Simulated scan of single mutants.
Amino acid sequence: MSDFWVFGYGSLMWNPGFDHQRTERALLRGAHRALCVYSWVHRGTEERPGLVFGLDNGGACRGKAYQVAGDIWPQTLDYLRAREQATMVYREHWHPIELDSGEKVEALVYMVDHGHPQYAGALPLEKQLDIVTGAVGQSGANPEYVLNTAAHLEEMGITDTALALLAAQLIGASRA
C-alpha cells in the first residue's frame, strides 16, 4: 500500500497526534486559513463557543504536510476523523498540494462546510477577539490555540497578517 499525505493548517501543525514518516512545509491553492468555525468541543462549548481555523474557499494556504505510511493509514484516518469530525463541521477532500521541495502530491484536507451551523464566516477582528478571549473546551483555552498556531507559523516563516493581529490583541488583553 502506498503512502498518504495530510495537510495541516491549524493545530495539526503543532500537535499532529499521529505517526508520520516525513513532514514538509507545503502550499495549498484554492483555499485559505480562516478563523471561521465556532468550536463546540475542542476550544469552546455550544453555550460558549470558541473559534478555530477552517480552510475556506479562495486564495492559498501555507501549512505543513505529513507523509503517513500506507500500512498505518487506516488507524491514522480513524484518528483524524475522531479529532476533526466530532461535529462534522469539516468535509474531507483530497486536494493537490505543493511541497517546498517542489514535489506535488495529493493530500487529505479538511475544508469547512458552509452549510454547517458552526460555520462562522468572516468575522471582524473585534468579534474574533471577543469570542476567543473567554472560550474553553475539551482541548483547552481558545487563546492558547490561537497563540500556538500564530507562534508556529512564525517559526515556520509563514506570514498570516490577520492571525498576527489577533495574536497581538490577545497578548495585549492578557497583560491588561
Rank of each mutant, 00 (worst) to 15 (best):
V112E: 02
H114R: 14
G102N: 00
G137Y: 00
T161V: 09
L125D: 04
I158L: 08
Y38G: 00
L123D: 00
E155D: 15
A65H: 01
M156E: 14
D100Q: 10
L129H: 13
M1I: 04
S2T: 06
D71T: 08
F4P: 00
T87E: 15
S139Q: 09
V68R: 06
T45D: 02
G10L: 05
R91L: 14
E46G: 13
V41K: 09
H114P: 09
C61R: 06
G8C: 07
W73V: 04
A34D: 11
C61Q: 11
Y90T: 12
R62F: 02
G121Y: 09
A107V: 05
L99P: 01
F7R: 03
A60D: 11
H42N: 10
A164D: 14
W40F: 12
G58L: 11
A107N: 08
H152G: 11
V6Q: 05
L125Y: 04
N57F: 15
Q85I: 09
W14N: 11
G58W: 09
A60R: 12
L12N: 09
K64T: 12
Q138S: 14
H32A: 10
L163R: 06
F7G: 03
H32M: 10
Y145E: 02
A141G: 13
E103I: 00
L55I: 13
R91D: 15
E103M: 03
V52K: 12
A65M: 02
D19R: 15
N148M: 14
E24A: 01
G54S: 14
R33F: 04
